[in-house]
Amino acid sequence: MRIWTVANQKGGVGKTTTTVSLGGLLASRGKRVLLIDTDPHASLTYYFGIDSEELEVSVFDLFTRGKTMAREEILQSLCPSGVENLDILPATMAIATLDRSLGKKSGMGLILRHALDKISDEYDVAILDCPPVLGVLMVNALAACNRVLIPVQTEFLALKGLDRMMRTMELMQSSQNKSYNFTIIPTMYDKRTKASLEAYKKLRALYGDKVWPGVVPVDTKLRDASLAMQAPHQFCPKSRGVFAYTSLLEHLEMAEND
């Protein structure tokens, strides 16, 4: 099972949209896909109309019960998305307490990886949607993945969030002796504005071929898809946003095969 983590230490850059768009496209191609919500805001969970506060089991249970949660229990905690081949491990607001309750305990950084190992034969791809805060949840999501996807809004304040994200990965590489494959994804690009053009140039100058050569444009259809609680490839298959994410997916799959 391939595991991609969508992360950035800045909110509002398109993490959840990227997670849903790529997950939906993979599912439409017959891949068995699991989306995992590790953000206390539960945006990914609510995207598909799931009221996480009414669930008996969520990602919170993985962290509080750790290795004692059996494979069948993990599978039973998953929710259907309404999209064929696409399931969700939902989040609840309770995971916001995990840093306080688990942050200082040893071995807390590999909980998600061990849980995913138990169900790895059930899915082809898992995509983890991260909170914009460095803590137990992001550390777990980074430790579990094969590739980090970093959406970056094409404006200069967002570049500061990317700088923090890169430092975080450097620290984790040192502590875990793990090298990260990562792809920077320019999002919310508006070719009419100087800010977008200059920010994109800056990204390419600083990070070179680590930046996906395409862009995800500003596209209100993506916002409309979330309002309709549908994956973008279903709601607006011919939109500019879906075209961009299709191109991104092809780029990522080529990178995985290299």
Score class of each variant (00 low, 15 high):
Ala7Leu: 08
Gln9Thr: 01
Gln9Gly: 04
Lys10Tyr: 02
Lys10Asp: 03
Gly11Arg: 02
Gly11Ile: 00
Val13Arg: 06
Thr17Tyr: 00
Thr18Ala: 11
Val20Glu: 05
Val20Met: 02
Leu22Phe: 08
Leu22Ile: 14
Gly23Leu: 12
Arg29Leu: 11
Arg29Glu: 15
Gly30Cys: 09
Leu34Thr: 04
Asp39Tyr: 01
Ala42Lys: 09
Tyr46Asn: 14
Tyr47Trp: 15
Phe48Tyr: 15
Ser52Thr: 07
Glu53His: 11
Val57Phe: 14
Val57Lys: 15
Leu62Lys: 09
Leu62Asn: 04
Arg65Gly: 08
Met69Trp: 05
Ala70Phe: 05
Ile74Asn: 08
Ser77Tyr: 00
Leu78Lys: 12
Leu78Pro: 02
Ser81Ala: 04
Gly82His: 12
Val83His: 10
Val83Glu: 14
Val83Gln: 11
Glu84Asn: 12
Glu84Arg: 15
Glu84Cys: 05
Leu86His: 06
Ile88Gly: 11
Ile88Ala: 10
Ile88Arg: 12
Leu89Cys: 04
Ala91Pro: 01
Thr92Tyr: 04
Ala96Ile: 00
Thr97Gly: 08
Thr97Phe: 01
Thr97Leu: 12
Thr97Pro: 00
Ser101Leu: 11
Leu102Met: 10
Gly103Ser: 03
Lys105Cys: 00
Lys105Glu: 14
Ser106Phe: 12
Ser106Ala: 15
Met108Lys: 11
Met108Trp: 07
Met108Thr: 12
Ile111Ala: 01
Leu112Pro: 02
Leu112Met: 11
His114Ser: 13
Ala115Trp: 09
Lys118Thr: 01
Ile119Gly: 09
Asp121Gln: 10
Ala126His: 01
Leu128Lys: 03
Cys130Gln: 00
Val133Ile: 14
Val133Leu: 13
Gly135Arg: 05
Val136Gly: 02
Leu137Tyr: 05
Val139Ser: 14
Val139Arg: 14
Val139Ile: 15
Asn140Tyr: 00
Ala143Trp: 14
Ala143Phe: 15
Leu149Pro: 12
Pro151Ile: 06
Pro151Cys: 09
Val152Cys: 11
Gln153Cys: 03
Arg164Cys: 09
Met165Leu: 13
Met172Lys: 08
Ser174Trp: 12
Ser174Asn: 09
Thr183Phe: 05
Ile184Lys: 10
Ile184Gly: 12
Ile185Lys: 02
Ile185Pro: 04
Asp190Pro: 03
Thr193Ser: 04
Lys194Gly: 06
Lys194Pro: 06
Ser196Asn: 05
Leu197Trp: 03
Tyr200Cys: 00
Tyr200Met: 14
Lys202Gln: 13
Leu203Lys: 05
Leu203His: 07
Tyr207Pro: 03
Trp212Ile: 02
Pro213Asn: 10
Val216Phe: 06
Pro217Phe: 06
Thr220Leu: 08
Lys221Cys: 08
Asp224Gly: 05
Phe235Ala: 15
Lys238Tyr: 11
Arg240Thr: 08
Gly241Lys: 00
Ala244Cys: 00
Thr246Met: 03
Thr246Tyr: 01
Ser247Arg: 14
Leu249Ala: 07
Glu250Met: 07
His251Asp: 13
Leu252Asn: 10
Leu252Trp: 09
Asn257Lys: 15
Asp258Val: 15
